[in-house]
Amino acid sequence: MNNHHSPQELRRIGRILKIARESQGQNLAILADKCNLSVMDLVAVESGEQSQLMKRGHKWPDCAMLYAKQLDVDIGALTNTDLLQKESKGIGSVEDESDIPLFLRNQR
């Protein structure tokens, strides 16, 4: 994951991580402990608030990668340029869902 994501991209990735956590029924406090971060840090990742993490001496990409690993989410797929372009057209317009993690795909 590179460090050149727009604030919108950080929020999008954070939302996906939050959805993943909630769909897995994971507890934020337990995940924070496993990541060696605070609950506030994970909330900042979920909301894409890079500045909040920097105030506490953390880098958003590092925290997001730790968090994604605990959720078993491929963060590389979330930052894939093709996926970003598809998503920018709207969720409903994504024809090929192969880049989307299975648990996030539309249930048909």
Rank of each mutant, 00 (worst) to 15 (best):
G76P: 08
D72E: 15
I75V: 10
K69H: 14
D74V: 04
L42F: 00
D41Q: 04
L71V: 02
M54D: 04
Q85L: 11
T79V: 15
L66Y: 07
I16H: 10
K55D: 06
Q70I: 05
P61D: 02
M40R: 15
R56W: 02
L53Y: 01
L53K: 01
V43M: 14
A20N: 11
D74P: 09
L78Y: 07
D72Y: 05
L53V: 04
A68F: 03
N80I: 03
E49A: 03
K55Y: 06
Q26G: 06
K18W: 08
D33G: 10
Y67G: 01
A68R: 00
R15K: 15
A32E: 05
E49Q: 07
E49K: 01
G57V: 08
L71E: 02
V45H: 01
D41R: 02
I16G: 06
I30N: 07
Q52P: 06
I13R: 12
L37S: 06
A77R: 15
C63K: 08
N80D: 09
I19M: 15
A20Y: 09
V43I: 14
L84Q: 09
N36A: 13
L31F: 06
D74Q: 08
L28M: 08
G25P: 07
Q50R: 06
A32V: 06
I75F: 03
D62G: 06
Q24H: 12
G48Q: 04
K55T: 07
I16S: 11
S47W: 08
D62S: 11
N80K: 03
A32I: 04
A77K: 15
M54I: 05
L31W: 08
S47N: 14
A68K: 02
I75R: 05
S38N: 04
D72I: 03
C35T: 01
S38C: 06
D41E: 09
V73P: 00
C35P: 01
A64S: 08
V73T: 02
A20C: 13
G48C: 07
H58K: 13
D82E: 12
G76L: 10
Q70A: 07
A77V: 08
A32H: 02
C63T: 12
V43D: 12
L17F: 03
I16Y: 07
Q24N: 13
L78D: 07
